[in-house]
Simulated scan of single mutants.
Amino acid sequence: MRVTLLGTGCPQVSTRRYGPASLLCWNDRQFLVDCGSGVTQRLLGAGSAGKSIDALFLTHLHSDHIIDLFQLIISSWHQGRDRPQRIFGPHGTRQYLNGLMALWRPELEQRIAHEKRPSTVALELEITELEPGIALRDGDLTVIAVAVRHQPVKAAYGYVFTDGRQKVAFSGDTAFCPDLILAAKDADALVHECFIHREMLALPGVRGPETIENVASYHTLSTEVGKVAAQARARCLILNHFVPVAFDSNALLADIRADYSGPVLVGEDLMQFDTVTGMLRHGEAAVALPWPQ
Score class of each variant (00 low, 15 high):
Leu5Asn: 03
Thr8Tyr: 04
Arg16Trp: 12
Arg16Pro: 00
Arg17Lys: 14
Arg17Asn: 10
Val33Pro: 03
Val33His: 13
Thr40Gly: 02
Leu43Phe: 06
Leu44Cys: 11
Ser48Val: 11
Ser52Cys: 10
Ile67Trp: 07
Gln71Cys: 04
Leu72Ile: 03
Ser76Thr: 02
Ser76Asn: 02
His78Ser: 13
Gln79Tyr: 12
Asp82Lys: 14
Pro84Glu: 09
Pro84Phe: 04
Gln85His: 15
Ile87Leu: 06
Gly89Val: 03
His91Arg: 15
Gly92Asn: 04
Gly92Lys: 05
Thr93His: 01
Arg94His: 11
Leu97Gly: 00
Leu97Gln: 02
Ala102Met: 10
Trp104Cys: 02
Glu107Cys: 08
Arg117Asn: 04
Ser119Leu: 06
Ser119Asp: 12
Thr120Tyr: 07
Ala122Ile: 06
Leu125Met: 04
Leu125Gln: 01
Thr128Gly: 00
Pro132Asp: 10
Ile134Glu: 15
Leu136Thr: 03
Asp138Trp: 14
Leu141Gln: 08
Val143Arg: 06
Ala147Gly: 14
Val153His: 12
Ala155Cys: 09
Asp163Tyr: 08
Gly164Ile: 07
Gln166Pro: 03
Lys167Thr: 04
Phe170Glu: 01
Ala175Trp: 07
Phe176Asn: 01
Leu180Cys: 05
Ala184Gly: 05
Asp188Trp: 08
Asp188Met: 06
Ala189Val: 11
Leu190Glu: 05
Val191Ala: 03
Glu193Lys: 09
Glu199Arg: 02
Glu199Lys: 01
Met200Ile: 14
Leu201Met: 12
Arg207Asp: 08
Glu210Lys: 14
Ser217Trp: 09
Ser222Val: 03
Gly226Tyr: 04
Gly226Ala: 08
Gln231Gly: 03
Arg233Asn: 15
Ala234Asn: 09
Val243Lys: 01
Val243Cys: 11
Ala251Arg: 13
Leu252Asn: 05
Leu252Thr: 03
Ala254Ser: 12
Ile256Ser: 05
Ala258Gln: 15
Ala258Leu: 13
Val266Asp: 08
Glu268Trp: 08
Asp269Leu: 01
Asp269Pro: 00
Phe273His: 01
Thr277His: 06
Glu284Asn: 14
Ala286Thr: 15
Val287Ala: 05
Ala288Ile: 04
Gln293Leu: 13
